[in-house]
Nucleic acid binder design. Sequence first.
DNA 1: TTGTACGCGTTATCAT
DNA 2: ATGATAACGCGTACAA
Lengths: 378, 378
Amino acid sequence: MQGRLPTLSDVARRAGVSYATVDRVVNDRGGVADKSVKRVREAIDELGYVRNVAAANLSQSRTYRFAAIIPTGTNQFFQQLRAILEAERIRLLADRINLRIEGIAAFDGEALCERLDMLARTGIDGVALVGTDDDIVARKIAELRAAGIAVLTLVSDAPNAPRDAYIGIDNRVAGQTAGRLIGLCHGGSGGRVLPIVGALSAPDHAERLEGMRETVTALYPDLAIAPVIIGRDEHEIVESKLRPIFENSHDITAVYSVGGGNAGLLRVLRALPADQNRPIVVLHDIVPQSREALENGVIDAIIDQRPEVEIANALNCLRSIADRRPPDVADPILPAVYFKENLPPPQGRETDAHPADAPSSDGARPASKSRVLKEIDQ
Amino acid sequence: MQGRLPTLSDVARRAGVSYATVDRVVNDRGGVADKSVKRVREAIDELGYVRNVAAANLSQSRTYRFAAIIPTGTNQFFQQLRAILEAERIRLLADRINLRIEGIAAFDGEALCERLDMLARTGIDGVALVGTDDDIVARKIAELRAAGIAVLTLVSDAPNAPRDAYIGIDNRVAGQTAGRLIGLCHGGSGGRVLPIVGALSAPDHAERLEGMRETVTALYPDLAIAPVIIGRDEHEIVESKLRPIFENSHDITAVYSVGGGNAGLLRVLRALPADQNRPIVVLHDIVPQSREALENGVIDAIIDQRPEVEIANALNCLRSIADRRPPDVADPILPAVYFKENLPPPQGRETDAHPADAPSSDGARPASKSRVLKEIDQ
DNA sequence: TTGTACGCGTTATCAT
DNA sequence: ATGATAACGCGTACAA
């Protein structure tokens, strides 16, 4: 298991200075003679010293306090996001990172600000939230950052707010990818693409639509784009607007739904008469519903923003910021394209399995959740 | 930054026992009175104790020694794999994980065994290698494992060897995905798919081909599959076998290349007369060459096994095994589908940037590589 | 069966 | 400008 790595003491000995001097050099504390600095640097280089992060973290014995604010409600995607975060909690705790997961009414700027205020008062190092185009939210974010709190936007950006970073896919790219896919699927023939959005005022929806339009008009001139359906992400509305279209005209060859309310779309698709050509259908985000539709051949492809990757990146990013390390903004997340064949298995993690069956070799069993929350959030 | 988390001492105090007793419970060492166990467990639960992994790792002060054996040669994919590993080295070192990256002639079982022997003699905790179907390799792997060394197969499995885990994509799924994509791209029309493989004896190539065949025959009966081209992953061979096919018959509507030697394919495609319909082309793995072809519209899609993800998983897996923790085999890696629009940016990381420009705030500058190697591999 | 004390490598504080 | 040293929380050897 071994091959001991050089420590700061080794460096000090080799450089002929004291431990503390090496520490000053290594941590840029200043107040060290130039020639000492030089000798230390040389020793570090010669020995191949690399800081032991476990020791560094231990000695500081600090616990980071982060929060994620996720919209509540029936939206399957956000439910999934929340589940992923929940599953990360204990694991993070082992690394002394305490993550609060907060729920909030979707798209309610006032409530969001209130919650942010509360968090700031409680004391917190960083927060990740789903961005909105709201002015008061932008101001609140500025306020938090001024107070030294890191702020990330998650899934949807807040374009005018001075957030530290946006973690999510480029929605225009996602739309372009959808456009490409739809274009390819026409195999050179003409057709008519029907776009469905929740609202054009939602930045992510607008960007996806625009991206699709760009690619289709530029590369597939034989494809027309039908008037956009505004479904407000609600399945009843989507269904009621969609049904007459499919009844009256049979020329829709593709459907691109950028947002929610897809239950309505699926109902219409399933009700399509057998003699009518089924359109190519491209949706966003793998959720139980869309997964099932893809498996049953009701739709053709799903463009997914890979929430697990988003969360992993967000957490890394927060940690870097808290540590005042180089930002570690990570590569931009690319939307993934899934067909029936390469659809990922349902759950990333099992819920809890059978604790009794697995006599955890490391013994440190996760504590009961209520207690963890109570003790740590205090 | 705070909100101190409970420690083992806290637990001991609360349970009214000594530190060592708590340790015995937590680490399943046995020899503790039942009622003590119970009280400790309760205290852990009540306090929400979670083991501090930084402290745990520090106290053991062990440095893991892992090795990755990657085929050398001109293969761009393996070069990339090596580059990714190289970039991880320093970062890993900070976590006291020492990774040796070894090169070896591709598909030379004898040489591989020799190298494995050498590594075993040097002393090593785990090794990742690109699997082959070789008997002597399988025996050598068994030998290593018997000696307590963890063995992972990467990219390509070694089906008959008792490796701890295989980290890579399911090549059948990859082929099925290609088949689906190609089928969709025909938009209901008929066509003829030309498959190109390196060798049918390579398990991954055979599986990809089989997967494609499965999906196409099952779902797209209007598509025929042309006789397979065996290109030995060499571009001259691919080119010379391909050119006459495109000259003599104009009915190839799609090409699926599962392996290497794509430079030859690309040359043939570029030389295609303007009046001839270009086939749909699906390739594997993003490398500079295939990237450029996708950007220029010479090919249509790339199925990528995401080597960064593979390596991240492999490293996690090795660490878990060395720690005797639950395997942490991670979810299977799914092949990703890339079009021109969602192609990831060229480099994950910059090579070295300008050290002078970035006066690393954490001071611990990466040592010169030669030294690092010399001191640690000793 | 239970308890004490030291080491791991770093940070931070106090002296010189 | 430099040096010594006490934490940090866990693992472990050793004592009782």
